[in-house]
Design a protein around this nucleic acid. Sequence first.
DNA 1: CGAGACTATGTCTAAAGTGACATAGTTGCT
DNA 2: AGCAACTATGTCACTTTAGACATAGTCTCG
Lengths: 180, 180
Amino acid sequence: MTSTLGFAILAVLARGERTGYDIAAAMRRPVSYFWTAGHSQIHAELQKLLAGNLVSFETRHGPGPQDKKVYSVTPAGTAALREWVTAPPRERPERDELVLKTYAAALADPEALRRLFADQLAAHEARLAEYEREEEAIGGPPAFGSPRFGNYAALRCGLGYERHRAEWCRWMLAQLSESL
Amino acid sequence: MTSTLGFAILAVLARGERTGYDIAAAMRRPVSYFWTAGHSQIHAELQKLLAGNLVSFETRHGPGPQDKKVYSVTPAGTAALREWVTAPPRERPERDELVLKTYAAALADPEALRRLFADQLAAHEARLAEYEREEEAIGGPPAFGSPRFGNYAALRCGLGYERHRAEWCRWMLAQLSESL
DNA sequence: CGAGACTATGTCTAAAGTGACATAGTTGCT
DNA sequence: AGCAACTATGTCACTTTAGACATAGTCTCG
C-alpha cells in the first residue's frame, strides 16, 4: 500500500542515492513541480518505505547534528516502481482556485479583476520563459530509456501548461477590456 | 478564516438558494470541476458558514427523513465573497501523477506505457468533445457581469486544458513509437 | 403495489498534507 | 571571531479530504 508520495520518492531515488534533505530539495524546485512534499512528510514516508524494504540507507558523516542517511532503492523498490509506472493513475479531483474565482467573477470589481489576471499572466509568462531556457539548454528530447527523457517530457508538459494558462489569462483580460 | 471550500460554496449559493445536497451535486458534475467536495465536507462547512453568519437557511418540507434546509447567502456572505474573488489565490502545489509516472518512464515497459498514454488521450478527447458541445450550446461569451459568464470562462479554461493535455499525450505517443 | 433510484442530512475514522518547533554541526563571508 | 546561511533529521499539532456508515421519506416505472 505505498502511497503516491512513496513512488515519488522512489522515482527521485531511482536517479541516484539521496538524503531525505536532498529529496525534499528536489521536490521544491520548479522543474520537479509535478509532485511536492515538505521534508517532514518525506522523512515519515522514508520510514514506511524502509519498513517495506523498498529503500535502504547508509549512514555517513556529514554536517548537521546527526549523521546523514543516504538512501537508495532496493531491487524490490525498483520492481514496485516499474509496475506502478504503467498502472493507470488514480485521478484526483481538479481544484483550481483561480477558476473558482472566475466562476464568481460577476460580483467582482472589474479593475481589481484586471489586476488579478495581469499578475497571473505575468507569473505564467515568467515561468514559461524559464522553461523555454531550460528546453533550449537540453536541445531536444533525450533518448527514451535515458532517465533524462523523463525530465524532458515533464518539462514539455509544463511548457504546454504554461502556454495554455497564459492564453486563457489573455483571453480573460480581453473580455474585461471589452466590457469597460 | 473561511476556507476555499467555504468560498466555493458561497460561489454556488450566489447563483441561487440550494440545499447541501444540491451543492454537492453541483460540485460533482464535470462543468464545475474546478472544485470538488463530498457531501460530508459540505454539510460540515455549511455549519461554519452559518456560525460566521455568511449563509442562512430556511427549513422546508421535502423528501427525505429530515426536512430540507435551503441555504442562501447573507449580505455579509456576498461581501466576503466579493472581496475574496479579487484577492490573489494562494497557489497550491502541482501534484500530477501522470507526469510523475512519465518522470520515471525510463524503467517502464514501452508497450504498457503506450497503452497508458493511449487511454489517457482517449479520455481527454472525450472530455474535449463534451466541452465543445457545451460551448456550442452556449454560442459565445455571455456578457461579463452575468453569472453565466463565470460558467463560460471556466469552460473555456477547461477546453484549453484538455487540448494542451491531449497534445502532450500525442507527443508522448509519437516519442514512444519512434523509439521502437 | 413493489423495487429501485433519488432526495436529504449527518457522524465517524483514517489518510494526506501544512507549518511550526527543536536541535546542531559546517561553511563561507566580513 | 562572529554571524548568517546551509545541511540535516525528526516530532507535533492542525487542517483538509476521502470514504464508509446510518437513516428514511418520496418518486417513477413496470
